[in-house]
């Protein structure tokens, strides 16, 4: 266990160093922050002075070394755009993204697994075929289209749900939550569904194919021959085995949901990390962009580690090996 954690830590540091190094190499192609920060009619002198102040006149490797030096001391720097600490900005935005991802993941598991099991049990049923058809749509329609469609139907036509924002949030001091107010919950529905759609489809299809494979294996046939109850066979024996790859995929999906909620957050003006990143890209806000990429690297490594640990919990064979 300790061995795993140490090797993961080293892995995390390597991943994050690589990601930020690549990011720094790419920033020169993203644009010039000085241009966007100066007044429209600023003189050349004014711009050069600002550039020097920001350290952007230095070679890329010097800028990178300075950045790493600051990060090691726990300082993510300040946003070029609004001159606030990046760490504060991220802390402000993280709850919105995490709550959205939590809802999306819950939705995709709660709906995806039962649907997958159902269509595996009745592979030729009319309902299963319908589910398969709809899931194809879910996996192929881009997020912004689904988002806008949902807004048009539920916000504009029926006026049932809000089209943007988080609604009323409650400030708990270190966390703002939308779960405690009615308007906050209503605001979660549309973006939650939009974000969930892809991973829901993925999980459903995965569960279905795994279940179909497992249901035709010998041990299930023997279990049936022993006369074990069908419920027990499907949920205890078959589904448990089918869930192993689902855990990996869900883990990776949570990572990508956090990292790439950008489109959903932009469509619904969801004040989370994705929107923060989007605006940082538009404004060439280098400190925010690097910190975000750093964070995403960390999230992926952490989730992978958790997934590996969960494997041990779910699969007794691994537990025996470790012992």
């Amino acid at each position: 266990m300790v061995g795993i954690l140490i090797s993961r830590l080293i892995q995390a540091i390597t991943v994050m160093l690589t990601v930020t190094a690549i990011a720094f190499l790419m920033f020169r192609f993203v644009g010039d922050p000085v241009q966007l920060m100066s007044r429209e009619d600023a003189s050349v002198e004014e711009k050069e002075e600002l550039r020097a102040r920001l350290g952007l006149d230095q070679p890329v490797y010097v800028q990178y070394a300075r950045f790493i030096g600051r990060v090691v001391q726990g300082d993510l720097g300040m946003s070029f755009r609004n001159q606030r600490e990046v760490a504060t900005l991220i802390a402000e935005k993280a709850p919105a993204t995490l709550e959205l991802v939590l809802i999306a993941t819950t939705l995709s598991l709660l709906i995806g697994i039962p649907l997958g099991v159902y269509s595996a049990l009745h592979p030729n049923g009319v309902l299963s075929r319908a589910i398969q058809g709809v899931s194809l749509v879910g996996i192929s329609v881009p997020t912004f289209v689904t988002g806008i469609l949902l807004i048009l139907v539920f916000a504009v036509s029926f006026r049932l749900l809000p089209s943007f924002g988080r609604g009323q949030t409650v400030d708990l001091g270190w966390w703002t939550t939308g779960f405690l107010t009615w308007s906050g919950i209503k605001a979660l529905i549309l973006p939650g569904i939009t974000l969930a759609l892809y991973s829901l489809t993925l999980i459903m299809r995965l569960v279905r194919s795994e279940m179909i494979d497992i249901l035709s294996t010998d041990y299930i046939r023997f279990a049936r021959a022993r006369g074990l109850p069908e419920r027990y066979i499907i949920f205890r024996l078959a589904l448990r085995n089918a869930l192993l790859p689902v855990i990996t995929v869900t883990g990776l999906q949570v990572g990508s949901l956090i990292a790439f909620a950008i489109v959903t957050e932009t469509v619904f003006q969801w004040p989370g990390l994705g929107l923060l990143f989007m605006q940082a890209v538009i404004f060439v806000d280098i400190p925010v962009m690097t910190s975000y990429l750093l964070l995403v690297g960390l999230v992926f490594v952490t989730i992978n580690t958790i997934v590996d640990l969960l494997y041990v919990v779910v699969d007794p064979r691994l537990r025996a090996r470790a012992a």
């Binding site: 807004i151 003006q269 605006q279």
Partner: peptide, 18 residues
């Protein structure tokens, strides 16, 4: 004042009475 980045959403929010 509520900033909305996406053009389509901003128009929808006006039409929906928000």
């Amino acid at each position: 004042f509520r900033p909305i980045t996406s053009d389509a959403t901003r128009v929808a929010a006006l039409l929906s009475g928000e």
